[in-house]
């Protein structure tokens, strides 16, 4: 029975990775940049929810809304201030800027909240589900998994069935041609960042609910792992991010359960290396055709 509970724990952890990986992959696919500050948006989201819940009377929905709004504004502003001026310059410059933004956000959080871990508020009291005698599933796990699946479906619909989705795909393929067709590239990229950051806020919420403590560096490890998940699934691919994230979570949790807690991260990265050796574009990654 412990296998099933480990598996479900892994699915729920994987859902958090998947939410973050989605943000990575969308921004990479559409704006063609690796936003290494993405993980720290999760931390900002978690701290905003933490602050709002303790100061605004503790209504969980108000707190979550505050987290969402703050992250969306932060994501869009970061893009406008830090990344947009570098559009068209070397990808390395953008990457270094993103790392700079990441450290900036961590330092600001360190300044405001200090380095001690803060207890994340119990926003909901979810009772665990008991199946049979020994199988207990945490309520948070089910909620995390369910919400993530709904969000994924929403994003797939948004991209494949709506006008802004078409604009995103067009910008991702050929910014110049899209612009000539009247597509507003700046707006499209802003919306992409807004969606990615909103997902990061949701991930921050679930991270807090799962691990109960948050600190200024909360976002960095999940951020890196989610990046791994996005590469694992094929960066730029939305279903790839989802599958990559969930697989990563399951592998990590099963390694913790059966092999060793200390080694679990090592195993996760070893699996990534193996997958990339066999399929360099990731599980669902498309081969990029060379222009002739």
């Amino acid at each position: 029975m412990s296998f099933i509970s480990n598996l479900i724990g892994g699915l729920s952890l994987g859902s958090i990775y998947a939410l973050i990986a989605l943000g990575y992959t969308m921004v990479y696919g559409i704006a063609k940049m690796l936003n290494f500050a993405h993980g720290d948006i999760i931390m900002v989201g978690a701290f905003t929810i933490f602050t709002a819940a303790s100061s605004l009377g503790g209504n969980p929905f108000v707190a979550i809304l505050c987290g969402l709004v703050t992250c969306v504004i932060l994501g869009v502003l970061t893009e406008k201030i830090a990344y947009k001026p570098l559009r068209g310059s070397s990808p390395l410059a953008v990457l270094i800027t993103a790392i700079g933004v990441s450290y900036f956000l961590q330092s600001v959080a360190l300044l405001i909240f200090g380095s001690t871990q803060r207890p994340f508020p119990k926003l909901f009291s979810l009772s665990p589900i008991r199946i049979g005698k020994d199988l207990v599933i945490k309520g948070e796990s089910i909620v995390t998994l369910g919400v993530t699946l709904v969000i994924m479906a929403g994003i797939m619909l948004l991209i494949n069935k709506t006008k802004i989705g078409k604009a995103m795909l067009a910008v991702s393929e050929d910014k110049g041609a899209a612009q000539l067709m009247g597509v507003n590239v700046n707006r499209t990229i802003s919306i992409t960042f807004a969606i990615g950051s909103a997902l990061a806020a949701v991930a921050g919420l679930f991270y807090g609910l799962t691990y109960n403590f948050i600190g200024p560096y909360t976002g960095s490890m999940p951020g890196i792992k989610a990046f791994v998940a996005a590469v694992f699934g094929g960066i730029g691919s939305i279903p790839g991010a989802m599958i990559g994230g969930i697989l990563l979570g399951v592998i990590e949790n099963l390694s913790k359960g059966y092999i060793s807690t200390e080694l679990s991260d090592g195993i996760v990265f070893a699996v990534l290396i193996l997958v990339l050796l066999i399929k360099p574009t990731g599980l669902l990654g498309k081969k990029i055709a060379e222009k002739v």
């Binding site: 709506t162 802004i164 078409k166 041609a177 899209a178």
Partner: peptide
């Protein structure tokens, strides 16, 4: 836009002619 359908290529050109918001689409 090579990885989009023929019809979708044309629809990109309609971008500003048939307005609806992101929220309405979602």
């Amino acid at each position: 836009f090579k990885n989009m359908s023929v019809l979708d290529n044309v629809k990109v050109g309609f971008e500003h002619q048939y307005p609806y918001t992101v929220a309405e689409g979602l």
